[in-house]
Design a protein around this nucleic acid. Structure first.
Lengths: 343, 343
DNA sequence: TATTAACACGAAACCGTTTTCGTAGTTAAT
DNA sequence: ATTAACTACGAAAACGGTTTCGTGTTAATA
């Protein structure tokens, strides 16, 4: 077993100083050609690679970014993560991934753990519990310490920082409008039980679209489901009790589950009831019938979040005094039409 | 903006030495009660937290583990990741996630980047390209440098280290046996085009089950598909050309895609053809009909991998000389029966 | 020949901790 | 009064690099 070699060992072996070795490996003109070649040859032979931790300590930059997401077994967050990881990779950054599991406490613990020097900045989506508690002191403190931060998807106006979001309101509005134009009149909404800014915006878009098209809002056509586990009874009762001709769901899982239950009740899709979901993951494509879905472009969102963060990190390096400015980038959703809405 | 405070600043402010501050914060008996209280109060006021990087450098331990997976938008790998992250969290470890994207080169680059001090050990599943090239020198080198490593799922006998795998052969055998016992006789196999150890083992299980039940192996009943993108034509031709009464697929995506194509061809599931897939993700549950699937227990697999790795890391701390021993843990798959096989 | 500049390298500080060891000052024991 | 033993703290090395500055040697210039 050959342990990694250090500058010090090379220096001792070659009877030069550590500084000389360091400079030679960086091709500094300060060092003679002979010495440089000798050192580089030796370093190569012993496969010398500088220790990242030592460099991080020196530079006070880790080239790591922290990503905190509520759930990893989740198509949308995963695609965002991929976008972040890919973009970060091109810029030489690694990604430390933490899962808050929709828990406020885990979010706080993870953030504090990482904020103590392990990373150069955060990219995160708020946990459901955090949104519910409406408590963002942990974010504020960390931002106040000068840690760059980008919030995506699950954001809040209470925290001032860079953000990347979907045009949820408009996307939802357009989806409902499309249903109405296709002649649907009794449009149900399946949304999350707990408060999430995105669900809320999608609901607002739904309300507005109904209103603009003179359709009255029927509260009994709104189904609120728990986010994480399945509650089949509630859904079954909902579809048994109500007559509708279309359903908008705030994510694809709700949509596909709902379709299954509706179909079990003898409802034909899309003839009797049309379905639209959000997310457009693999589930949408492979459901029966294939689900019309609002693409959230997670990968793009992740890449943009990573770009914003890295720009801020590297700008901090340059100028210290410049006035801070924060941006919010809005990604345009796209409606992908499939069998669940085509008449 | 209040930047993080350091020991040195506290020391200067309180006119004591850095060592005294460090000891006081650790409640060392060396420091008087008065001094300790004064320092702790000051530290608390300024929210002092030790710098992780400095500690990592000192201890030569980062409390980070590197996870390299071929793909993150992938149900199985995601569940494994969750298992790793959860277990690691309970032990105070963070997870640095890298995606090899099934590429040999990316795998090498990511590993080398992380191996230079950023992490204490690796957990990884080999990329498809790596398995194809059969080139594992990067793994060997890193292991040889004393870096603990656990391979999971996509493993190889050529690398000697800890491993966690599914009993793929047996799981596949049992699945096929179940089909045969249900009276199926012409059983197709849908597997990956490129070589993967897991696909291969599943195919071996399939062969063996056929053989043991005196069913002859019909090569035309084997469909090989590309792993990452969809090739609908090939599948369509396959289901149009062949008559079968059951299909075993090496993952749930192949299974659900196949079911859709079969259904389009007027095949009834499970009456005409039964389907079994591997993975048992959300797709299996929500497909129509719901797919009978081999549960791979990814989360458990991840937790076990993390436990093995952390044990090795922390054992390395203790004893240096002890003989290295490597284990392979085998997870037992479970067949989850759903509509796609029930007659 | 004296002065200056270029060259090639080393010493040391620094990043932020931890930890060993040394030592004043006090107290207790001889 | 002398020695021994604490107590409470500081200096310094170490982790593994980078970087600034100083310096001895040689070569070029006046």
């Amino acid at each position: 077993m050959k342990k990694k070699i250090t500058l010090k060992q090379i220096a001792r072996e070659l009877e030069v100083s550590i500084s000389t070795v360091s400079k030679a490996l960086k091709n500094s003109r300060e060092i003679s050609k002979d010495t440089t070649e000798k050192i580089q040859a030796f370093a190569k032979l012993y496969n010398y690679k500088p220790n990242n931790i030592a460099i991080s300590l020196k530079n006070r930059r880790t080239k790591n970014i922290g990503v905190i997401i509520p759930d990893i077994v989740h198509h949308f967050f995963t695609t965002v993560f991929r976008g972040i990881e890919q973009f970060a990779g091109t810029r030489g950054y690694n990604v430390i991934a933490c899962v808050s599991d929709e828990s406020f406490e885990k979010e706080v613990i993870n953030m504090e753990l990482l904020a103590n020097g392990s990373i150069d900045g955060f990219i995160m989506a708020l946990s459901a519990e955090t949104q519910l508690k409406n408590d963002f002191h942990h974010l504020k403190e960390i931002i106040d310490q000068g840690m760059p931060m980008v919030l995506f998807d699950r954001v809040t106006d209470d925290v001032i920082c860079d953000k990347v979001v979907l045009n949820d309101f408009e996307a939802s509005y357009m989806a409902v409008k499309k249903l109405i134009e296709n002649g649907r009149k009794r449009i149900a909404l399946v949304t999350t039980e707990s408060y999430l800014n995105v669900s809320d915006k999608r609901a607002q878009g739904y309300y507005m679209a109904l209103k603009d098209h003179k359709l009255e809002l029927d509260e009994s056509l709104i189904l609120r489901l728990p986010y994480q586990y399945e509650e089949e009874k509630k859904s079954e009762a909902f579809f048994a009790a109500n007559r509708m001709d279309a359903v908008l769901c705030v994510n694809e899982i709700f949509a596909v589950r709902s379709m299954k239950i509706a179909q079990k009740n003898g409802i034909r899709i899309p003839e009797d009831v049309a379905f639209i979901g959000f997310t457009d993951g693999i589930l949408s494509k492979l459901a029966t019938p294939a689900l019309t879905s609002v693409a959230q472009h997670g990968e793009q969102m992740g890449a943009i979040a990573a770009r914003m963060l890295i720009e801020k990190i590297e700008r901090d390096d340059e100028k210290e005094l410049e006035e801070e400015t924060f941006r919010t980038e809005v990604i345009e959703a796209t409606l992908i039409e499939r069998e669940s809405t085509i008449n």
